[in-house]
Amino acid sequence: MQLKELSSRSGVSGASIKFYLREGLLAPGSTAASPRADYGPGHLRRLELIKTLRGVVGLGLAGIKEITGGIDDPGLGTVELMGRVQSIVLGLAEEAVPDHPLMAGLVGPGRWADASSRARNSLNLLLHRMDELGVPANPRVLAVYAAAVDQVAALDVGHAEQAASRDELAGTVAVGTHLYGELLLKMLAVAQASRAIRGPEG
Results as ranks from 00 to 15, higher is better:
95 E>G: 02
59 L>C: 11
136 P>Q: 00
61 L>P: 04
75 G>H: 11
42 G>N: 10
57 V>L: 03
115 A>C: 02
53 L>N: 07
66 E>N: 05
107 V>P: 00
160 A>R: 06
59 L>I: 11
157 V>I: 15
109 P>A: 15
155 L>H: 14
43 H>V: 01
64 I>S: 07
149 V>D: 02
110 G>M: 08
120 R>A: 01
111 R>N: 06
112 W>R: 13
130 M>Y: 12
116 S>T: 12
143 A>D: 12
128 H>F: 01
56 V>S: 07
123 L>E: 00
99 D>I: 00
83 G>E: 05
115 A>W: 00
143 A>G: 12
48 E>W: 03
159 H>V: 11
48 E>K: 13
162 Q>H: 13
134 G>W: 07
141 V>G: 03
124 N>A: 04
61 L>D: 03
45 R>V: 08
117 S>I: 08
159 H>I: 11
161 E>F: 04
120 R>C: 05
157 V>F: 10
69 G>P: 11
148 A>D: 01
48 E>N: 09
51 K>Q: 14
113 A>H: 11
88 I>M: 02
160 A>I: 07
116 S>M: 05
86 Q>C: 04
102 L>K: 07
124 N>T: 01
156 D>S: 07
130 M>P: 01
139 P>I: 11
103 M>L: 15
148 A>I: 12
93 A>G: 04
130 M>I: 03
106 L>T: 13
91 G>C: 05
90 L>W: 01
125 L>R: 11
98 P>F: 02
129 R>N: 05
111 R>I: 05
121 N>D: 07
161 E>M: 14
144 V>S: 11
46 R>S: 12
136 P>R: 00
89 V>K: 06
120 R>K: 13
153 A>W: 03
46 R>M: 12
105 G>H: 08
58 G>K: 10
152 V>M: 08
43 H>Q: 04
136 P>D: 01
53 L>W: 09
93 A>F: 00
114 D>N: 13
59 L>S: 13
134 G>T: 07
92 L>V: 07
137 A>L: 02
62 A>V: 13
132 E>L: 12
75 G>C: 08
72 D>N: 14
67 I>Y: 05
145 Y>R: 02
50 I>M: 06
110 G>S: 07
